[in-house]
Nucleic acid binder design. Structure first.
Length: 777
DNA sequence: CGTCTCCTGCTTTTT
DNA sequence: GCAGGAGACG
């Protein structure tokens, strides 16, 4: 093996770097320890905002400066390409060009690809294997499911894909799937998993999970190869260790058994990818796995104010089995975390929109805050819509982070499939994807004929199609179209082989295939955008030497970084927000069932709830200056109006660090929902009626004709309200209109509304129908 | 073969 | 409430 494509560091540079290191002066004692304890296993527990990346990058610089390893003998692993890029940039700032020699700085997946390409034959693959995206994966599975005579309605392909993914995350090859899993997917999960792996091998393809799984399998079966890498990687660094799954853990442990110089950085309190197979256990177990490990805690926070830190600590304290950290800061005072309840989701969006404008104007005591410095972090992406709608109407610029990514868009995938065919005509999945896109009159029947012809002579689909045409097995207009398609692929492939200019070729392919024309003729509103994206795709090719290089890059890097100039408020999920920070953060939708998510709790019980709580912790700790948590009393869920209870996480916020802006009438839960009197007392103590939020709310509701009746708003919700009603009463609800009470459960009424159907509503929000004429409409 | 309409079923999503 | 898939129809 010769991963040694990097020349040794020039002497002049070494001398420069060996001088006493000024970069160390920049660090606090804990960070310094994380940087200077170079040998042996080290676990750095880095709380949110404690300079984790700084410690990690300085550590790399220090390794290089101390001549402990050459740049390409350091293995530095991240989860995302973004994190890898950031790390490379920051190491570059510390060491100059030397960082360029870090050939093994990358994601688990990109490094695995590198390793797997070298030893592909040991996994039954050729080194030019293709990496399937989720789309291809699902299509492939659908075929296998059909072939196995399984009703894919009852047993959807997505489910099987999820199952296989989970098994791969645990590093289970088909033969290693334990018998306890035998009942999965109608008792046929294991069988289909094996069939899927066979099929992948015959396609010379892998999925994301395979990248790690194959590498681990090769390492386990070939100690000599493993030993080479163990020798090669003198120092191993891992970012976000709390997010590793079992396969990644094995991957690391195998490699680290050489020099035993492994430094893992992570925060057990920020483990939020359990549902993707991440095992918090990996970080909790570190000292057992690596005896003699040094554990260093980074606890000084450089991001948030004391109130924000205290609120976050208060919430996360309810979790059990933590490694434990105590975040502190030298920063003084600052704003308390603000808490506000709203009538419904639309009002929440409206209020946040106005708050954002107030922050921009600088009327919230922080000086003007740029829209770039503000973020709305939601639990589930469907919550984003209310904000988008609202911001569009008030003309507030926003950006949604983590929507469908560029390379996941339909038109981009189609175009890429064409490119894939041009590069490797044997790519059957690409063939299937575009043979009838644009429509060429080659429907299911024609396609299964092609499949049959290909299978009959054991060739790929393109050859199968050629055979089919030769034997006249296809007639009518389809034949001519198919002939043109095959000829097109041949022509493009020749051009690739001849080394034609890949940008021109890409344009030609999209032109000749009729793909561009297809969208030009499409009059749906999204067609222009899609054409725009195709143009961007072609532009992206400029950064690559050829199509092959581009395709390789794209299969691993599924993102599109377009730098925008105008300041915009960010809207994203809590998951997408990890690692980011903003002066002002809004956390809407803190309601039972939504956050914590009901499904999380149903599926994973206490474990699920604790992961939700960590998500709350991640959310709060994104805020630097001001953090606003909100909830709504009513929310439309799947088109149904539902009344909501404030999240239990709100109860867990330490009161001393929270300013309640909520009018008590909407405060149905929160700090001790049990005793209504107490709720009122505390609300008063929080000086609700003098808070800007309250005055604001008064002003707003006065101006708003659809405001709920004052009576309902000012009422403390209590069980007494229920006693005003009996089953069969005719009642009125501001949102749902008139209805009849069909049942009483706790403090809620079950009401059958004339227009809105059956709802469970807190009694404080309805009134006897005969009083309803006072309601301003 | 393609299009329209009904029906179902729903988080989070680094690669 | 909406999207995506299947099944019926042209």
């Amino acid at each position: 093996m010769s991963p040694t494509d990097t020349p040794p560091i020039p002497l002049s540079q070494r001398a420069m770097m060996a001088r006493p290191a000024p970069y160390l002066d920049d660090l606090n004692p804990a960070q310094r320890a994380a940087v200077e304890v170079l040998d042996g296993p080290v676990l750095v527990l880095a709380g949110a905002g404690t300079g984790k990346t700084k410690a990690l990058t300085t550590r790399i610089a220090h390794l290089l400066a101390m001549n402990k390893a050459r740049p390409n003998e350091i293995l530095a692993v991240t989860f995302t390409n973004k994190a890898a890029r950031e790390m490379k940039n920051r190491v570059g700032r510390l060491t100059g060009d030397v960082a360029e020699g870090m050939k093994w700085l990358g994601t688990f997946h990109s490094i695995s690809v590198k390793i797997l390409r070298r030893h592909a034959e040991l996994a039954g693959l050729k080194s030019n294997f293709t990496i399937l995206d989720t789309d291809d994966q699902i299509r492939l599975l659908k075929q296998l499911i059909a072939a196995a005579n399984i009703d894919d309605k009852r047993w959807p392909a997505r489910m099987l894909a999820g199952l296989i993914d989970a098994w791969k995350n645990r590093a289970w090859t088909p033969s290693k799937v334990p018998s306890s899993e035998a009942s999965a997917y109608d008792n046929r999960g294991t069988e289909l998993y094996a069939a899927y792996q066979d099929r992948l091998r015959s396609l010379n393809a892998v999925d994301f999970g395979d990248l790690l799984l194959h590498v681990v399998t090769i390492f386990q079966a070939h100690p000599d190869i493993l030993a080479q890498y163990q020798r090669w990687f003198r120092y191993i660094l891992v970012d976000e260790y709390q997010d590793t799954n079992v396969a990644q853990y094995l991957w690391l442990r195998l490699l680290a058994q050489g020099h035993r110089n492994i430094c893992c950085v992570g925060d057990d309190d920020q483990s939020i990818y359990g549902w993707r197979g991440a095992e918090v256990g990996n970080i909790l177990r570190f000292e057992k796995d690596f005896p003699g490990a040094e554990v260093i805690r980074l606890e000084q926070n450089y991001r948030s104010t004391p109130h924000i830190l205290a609120a976050a600590s208060g919430v996360i304290a309810a979790n059990s089995g933590r490694l434990g950290k105590e975040l502190w800061t030298e920063v003084e005072e600052g704003e308390k975390v603000r808490l506000i309840g709203h009538w419904d989701g639309e009002e929440e969006a409206r209020w946040i929109g106005e708050e954002i404008e107030a922050l921009q104007r600088g009327t919230r005591g922080l000086g003007p805050v740029s829209a770039d410095g503000m973020a709305i972090l939601v639990r589930a992406s469907h919550q984003m819509r209310a904000f988008e709608d609202r911001f569009l109407t008030i003309g507030l610029p926003y950006r949604v982070i983590g929507g469908p990514r560029f390379y996941e868009r339909l038109e981009i995938r189609d175009a890429m499939a064409y490119f894939r065919l041009a590069v490797s005509p044997a790519d059957d999945l690409a063939f299937e994807r575009v043979v009838n896109t644009p429509k060429r009159g080659l429907g299911d029947k024609a396609q299964s004929e092609i499949q049959r012809a290909a299978r009959a002579s054991g060739v790929n689909l393109l050859e199968g199609a050629r055979d089919l045409l030769a034997e006249g097995g296809i007639g009518g207009k389809g034949a001519g179209q198919l002939r043109a398609f095959v000829a097109g692929v041949d022509r493009w492939h020749e051009a690739v082989q001849a080394g034609a200019d890949h940008i021109r070729l890409a344009e030609t392919i999209l032109e000749e295939s009729g793909y561009t024309a297809m969208w030009q003729n499409d009059k749906t509103p999204e067609a222009p955008g899609r054409l725009e994206n195709l143009k961007e795709l072609v532009k992206a090719l400029e950064q690559f030497e050829n199509l092959q290089g581009f395709l390789e890059h794209v299969s691993l890097i599924m993102e599109n970084e377009t730098e925008e100039s105008a300041p915009k408020v960010s809207i994203m999920t809590l998951h997408a927000a990890k690692g980011l920070e903003f002066p002002a953060v809004f956390l809407p939708g803190w309601e039972e069932g939504l956050f914590p998510s009901q499904r999380s709790m149903d599926e994973s019980g206490k474990k699920g709830l604790e992961e939700e709580r960590r998500l709350a912790y991640v959310g709060i700790t994104r805020a630097e200056e001001i953090c606003t948590i909100s909830f709504a009393a009513n929310r439309r869920v799947y088109g149904q109006w539902q009344s909501q209870l404030p999240s239990r996480f709100i109860d867990e916020l330490p009161e001393a660090h929270v300013e309640v802006l909520t009018p008590p009438g909407l405060y149905g839960g929160g700090f001790g929902a049990a005793a209504p009197a107490q709720v009122e007392a505390r609300a008063v103590k929080a000086d609700v009626y003098n808070s800007p939020g309250w005055r604001r709310m008064q002003a707003q509701s006065a101006a708003r004709p659809m405001a709920q009746p004052r009576e309902a708003r000012n009422q403390v919700i209590d069980l007494a309200a229920v006693s005003r009603f009996v089953t069969g009463d005719r009642v009125f609800h501001q949102k749902f209109g008139y209805g009849d009470i069909t049942g009483i459960e706790g403090d809620k009424l079950q009401i059958s509304f004339d227009r809105a159907g059956v709802k469970h509503v807190v009694a404080g929000f309805v009134m006897p129908a005969d009083q309803a004429q006072d309601v301003p409409f």
